[in-house]
Structure formats: structure tokens, C-alpha cells
Design a protein around this nucleic acid. Structure first.
Length: 273
DNA sequence: AGTGTATCCTGCAGGC
DNA sequence: TGCCTGCAGGATACAC
């Protein structure tokens, strides 16, 4: 669910609350969220200090004392909710709660439980970083490099964009939105994009991600920031979830297609094959 | 190696 | 009102 703009919003909010605090204890209600097991997870976070809070792709990352990294993947419905004092109500579907010192609690809530929380050592963290593609805002990612990266894949550009090994942080919403803004049909083979297409797509992607971050992300249904509030970028969406509705650019009905049991959206006039 | 598919799980909306 | 079906922002294991 949450893609780069949503996780970036969460990271910016949490940084203020978490940096410098110590994890006094954790409450583990849903251990299926913890691939390393409850005991190992508890051991890995308890009494660690949170030194930094950031994001890599769609994952929220906290640097802990002792050179380890807490990595949170939100899956489809994961939320990180800050509880500053005991008067704030405890949210639904809480799986993990971090009790912090001097004060505050951080809840991980997730109704579908596709999310995962894991603590990695330096080598595990390095392996994860290497396995992910570049950040869309990486200044080293030029139009030419992006075009080169596409050139050996005949899969649809829509699917390519969502593969985290190719590019980190893009999911279904922003893949569709960027393709519409760049006027590229989502089913075109990635390798069929010209240098000019690739450059336009990278520019559109950066623009839509930047705007979405400014709006606090997109809330279709489940996404909430750390205060439990929705993001407002849905009103700026041009195609995602708008099958049958008129294209905001040319007015003809947008089309919803299905591939691998996932929906994609495009304008047949603005995005010719 | 790249590509497509099924699957994990719950909740909600829409049709009847 | 209630039952059924389809659908959902992700990621991975698998078969070809």
C-alpha cells in the first residue's frame, strides 16, 4: 500500500519523536509480523537507542545503537502510529508496540498483516541495500542511465517500475500516474521506450512523487500518517482508480486493465500503444 | 535470467 | 438484513 511518498511522510514525522529515544521494552501481540521470531526480535531492539530515522524505498528504517537497523515494511495496510501520552486511544489491529524512554509509544498496526518488522546487522543491512534499485531522487540517476536500465526488459513498463530491484519506492498508484503524465502506455515493453520517452518518464515520476510527498501521500482507504490522519493526494490522481471516468486531460473515458490480478489505468488517447 | 501466476490475510463495497 | 463475490497501495516462492 504505502509507496515512497507515504513512507517518506511517516519517516519525517517519526524522526522528531524517535531520535535519541531508547526502546525500554516491546509488546508483541502478532508474532507473524516478525520473521526472525519474537525472542530474537525482542533481544535485538530492547534497550537500544534510536539514532536515526529514514527511508529506503518503501521501507522505514531506524538506525539503532550497536550498529543494527530496524526495518519496517508496511505491506498493504501497515500503520505506524505515535502515542505521545496515555490519553490517546490505542488503535485497532496493533501487532507490535515500542515503549520508549523518556516517554511515548510507537504502535505498529496492520489489519491484513502483510507487513514485516526485522532487525538487521551491518551485513544484512548492506545486503538489503544492495538488492534494491536506486532511489527515484538519486541525483546519480540520469535519464540516460534510466533508459539504459530499461533496455534489456520486455516486460511492461508498468510492471518494471514496480519491481523494487529495478527502482526502489514505486508501486501501483505512482507507476500509473507517472505513465499518464509522461503519455506512455503502461503495457509497452520497457525496452521499447526511446531515450526521450525514458527521460520524460523519469521527470514525470519525480514530479508526481514530489507533489504526493507535499500532500502527505495518497489515502485510498487504509493509509494513515503517524497521527492517524489521511494523505490528500487522491484528489490530484489523474488515472489511478478512475476507470470509466473522463480523462482530466482529453475527456475520453479512462480504461482499467488487469494483468497478473492487478489493475492498471490509462487513457487510450493520451497514452497510445 | 526474466516473466507471469498464485498466495499470504482482512475488510469493505456492491449486487441480489 | 444477510450472503456472496470481487477487490485492495506489497512481496515472494514457484514454474516455465
Amino acid at each position: 500500500m504505502p509507496e515512497l511518498p507515504e513512507v517518506e511522510t511517516i519517516a519525517r514525522q517519526l524522526r522528531r519523536h524517535l531520535r535519541g529515544r531508547r526502546i525500554r521494552k516491546v509488546t508483541l501481540a502478532r508474532t507473524d509480523l516478525l520473521p526472525q521470531g519474537a525472542a530474537a526480535f525482542r533481544r535485538a531492539v530492547q534497550n537500544r537507542r534510536i539514532l536515526r530515522v529514514g527511508r529506503r524505498g518503501k521501507r522505514l528504517v531506524c538506525g539503532l545503537s550497536g550498529s543494527s537497523w530496524l526495518v519496517v515494511s508496511l505491506g498493504m495496510t501497515g500503520r505506524l502510529l505515535w502515542q505521545g501520552d496515555s490519553r490517546t486511544p490505542v488503535p485497532l489491529h496493533v501487532g507490535v508496540t515500542f515503549h520508549l524512554e523518556p516517554k511515548g509509544r510507537l504502535h505498529y498496526a496492520d489489519s491484513r498483516r502483510f507487513g514485516r518488522l526485522v532487525v538487521l546487522g551491518p551485513e544484512g543491512w548492506e545486503a538489503l541495500r544492495r538488492s534494491l534499485g536506486p532511489e527515484p531522487f538519486d541525483p546519480g540517476l540520469s535519464g540516460g542511465k534510466f533508459h539504459q536500465a530499461l533496455s534489456s526488459f520486455k516486460a511492461p513498463i508498468w510492471a518494471w517500475l514496480q519491481n523494487q530491484h529495478h527502482l526502489a519506492g514505486v508501486g501501483n498508484i505512482y507507476a500509473n500516474e507517472a505513465l499518464h503524465r509522461a503519455r506512455i502506455h503502461p503495457m509497452r515493453p520497457a525496452a521499447s521506450l526511446s531515450a526521450k520517452d525514458a527521460e520524460a518518464l523519469l521527470r514525470a515520476l519525480r514530479r508526481v512523487l514530489r507533489e504526493a510527498i507535499q500532500q502527505g501521500g495518497s489515502t485510498l482507504r487504509d493509509y494513515r500518517n503517524t497521527r492517524g490522519e489521511p494523505g490528500t493526494f487522491v484528489r490530484s490522481l489523474q488515472v489511478y482508480g478512475r476507470g470509466g471516468l473522463p480523462c482530466r486531460r482529453c475527456g475520453i473515458p479512462l480504461v482499467r486493465g488487469v494483468r497478473s490480478q492487478r489493475s492498471f489505468f490509462f487513457c487510450p488517447r493520451c497514452q497510445p500503444v
